[in-house]
Design a protein around this nucleic acid. Structure first.
Lengths: 335, 335
DNA sequence: TTGTATGCGTTATCAT
DNA sequence: ATGATAACGCATACAA
């Protein structure tokens, strides 16, 4: 690979002049500029990004950590992050943690090794105390979930109110035995959605039947398994609210295999509005959240942090909306 | 951030000794080692990766390019790549190209800027001539599709024979009017699967009705739209083979909306065996390919290329298998 | 307008 | 066993 020295020698100038031609910062005589350009062309010169980064002490790399690259919810968030990063001249390094805190910390360490300029977490990935401390001195943004009492810049919807909205919809249809398939209890998101579920029932004067709250892991398969369990109860629920669409699709499968009709025998609602959710049969009632925008706004904030620019607000809450489709309906006893 | 000089000063040694303590290559007196370690601890020293990389002229970064991060097929391939990369101490930079060759070339340029050590393409992303030339002097592996007459190291299944297998299955059930929803014509994969479709029909002595070959773009929605078109024909097909599962799921939706039963009125088959494909209703007949392994083997090859180690073989073809589920059955006139 | 010289923080060579 | 020093390739302050 040709270096700046090779170009300088061929163009009969100093390396400083070559550097100036590249940056365009200082004025350069048009004729020498031509010579330099010609030399760069001839040598097929590409500046070494490593040297440039060391000199500038910046990498132009942003890391986005996701618990699971397979999850289509996050991939749309990532698209928003990527677009925002590209527009600002940053590269995106995507890290998959599989919910493993060790992996997450490994990626976070890249910040301290100067191999990345900033970090976006989609879901917290680790304990709040550690994260607060870590983020205090480093450019970090938390996307998708909100940590109560934390000072970390955050972009998310209000998961509690969104979950409440789903359950109120089911209550309004006449359901009284509504089950909730929650996500992993250690995930903040999961607890927030569970809280919304409880609030809706309580505001309706109903007690929460703890048997009807079951934990999944956000996978299709866990939704399937948990639903089979729910259906085996003496008094099965008339509606199931799953904490994400994938578990809801798993639930649909289990219900159909059980020989029941949706929504006639049992209603199902999810959360996220994946693309596939309007294509499954029956199509899924769910919460639509602005996934792309969550990503885009997150990276905007992060870049301001990296540049030490002030933040207008540190906690951004975006709007969600309830999408009612075929999977939710009036319970049988009311028909 | 503390540097190696700060550590050296505090420990009252030279920077060379600090470096030795870190690498463990040369012997160091245990007592001085303790002093150095203590100093590193006290200063919370983290070596600067940028400087290290510049010195070594390596980044330990591998780039994986995918046409669409949303596509669950690729995300499993990426998992394989990521695991392989991690095991070998590499970081993975994931690039989304949206099928845009400009974006792809931008990422490829990172190789020439020394910001990455190697590149994996999942689908070719660009024209063969450019790619062959580009790959001739750089560590590059092509995953998922095979380019006829190319010398680029490749890991994939045999898409032609796999597609043939699907169509032969439909023929064996008694279908004669079999439609094909192909992927974008500029994608090698799409043309390979189309070729397999043609071969199967021809080997069965059937002519290909060109009206029954329609182009989609691998999205759910395109499968839906194209299927509506197919169903509007005077003589609609009795079976549809979609070039991927997402289009097949779109097709299922269109067929149900049309009031037809699957597989009684019309059979559907896909390609890829996404997780969701066994959960949709009816569950999908499809081709299962070793996505994770494709990724894993690709990165293995790439790392050998980066290290200038010899390759046992440059074109790896892995096994696929036909998974028969509920969406394909005997056509009505045969029942 | 251009050149010289220094430093970014490592690793590695060569002495001692 | 340890230290001094030279790269790695670039950007920039300062001189000319």
């Amino acid at each position: 690979m040709a270096t700046i020295h090779d170009v300088a020698k061929l163009a009969k100038v100093s390396i400083a002049t070559v550097s100036r031609v590249m940056s365009g910062a200082d004025p350069v005589n048009p004729k020498t500029q031509q010579r330099v350009l010609a030399a760069m062309e001839k040598l097929n010169y590409r500046p070494n990004g490593l040297a440039r980064n060391l000199r500038n002490l910046r990498t132009n790399v942003i890391i986005a950590l996701m618990p699971n690259i397979q999850n289509p919810f996050f991939s749309e968030v990532i698209r928003g992050i990527e677009d925002g990063a590209r527009e600002a001249g940053f590269h995106l390094l995507i890290g998959n943690t599989d919910g493993d805190r060790g992996k997450a910390k490994e990626y976070m360490a890249l910040l301290d090794e100067s191999l990345a300029d900033g970090l976006i977490l989609t879901t917290a990935q680790t304990d709040q105390a550690f994260l607060d401390e870590f983020a205090a001195h480093r450019p970090i943004v938390l996307a998708c979930e909100y940590m109560e009492g934390s000072t970390i810049p955050t972009v998310s919807i209000d998961n509690i109110s969104a979950a409440r909205k789903v359950v109120k919809h089911l209550l309004a249809l006449g359901h009284r035995r509504i089950a909730h398939i929650m996500g992993p209890n250690e995930v903040i998101l999961s607890r927030a959605r569970l809280a919304g579920y409880r609030q809706a029932l309580q505001q309706h004067g109903l007690e929460v039947d703890e048997m009807l709250v079951q934990e999944g892991d956000f996978s299709l398969d866990s939704g399937y398994r948990v639903t089979r369990k729910l259906l085996s109860f003496k008094r099965p629920p008339t509606a199931i609210f799953a904490a994400n669409d994938e578990m809801a699709i798993g639930a649909i499968r289990a219900i159909r295999e059980h020989g029941l009709q949706i929504p006639d025998d049992i209603s199902v609602a999810g959360f996220d509005d994946l693309t596939v959710s309007s294509f499954v049969s029956p199509s899924l009632t769910t919460i639509q959240q602005p996934r792309y925008e969550i990503g885009y706004r997150s990276v905007e904030m992060l870049i301001r942090l990296i540049r030490s620019e002030p933040l207008a607000q540190t906690q951004v809450v975006l709007d969600d909306s309830l999408v009612i489709r075929e999977s939710s309906g009036v319970p049988k006893e009311h028909m």
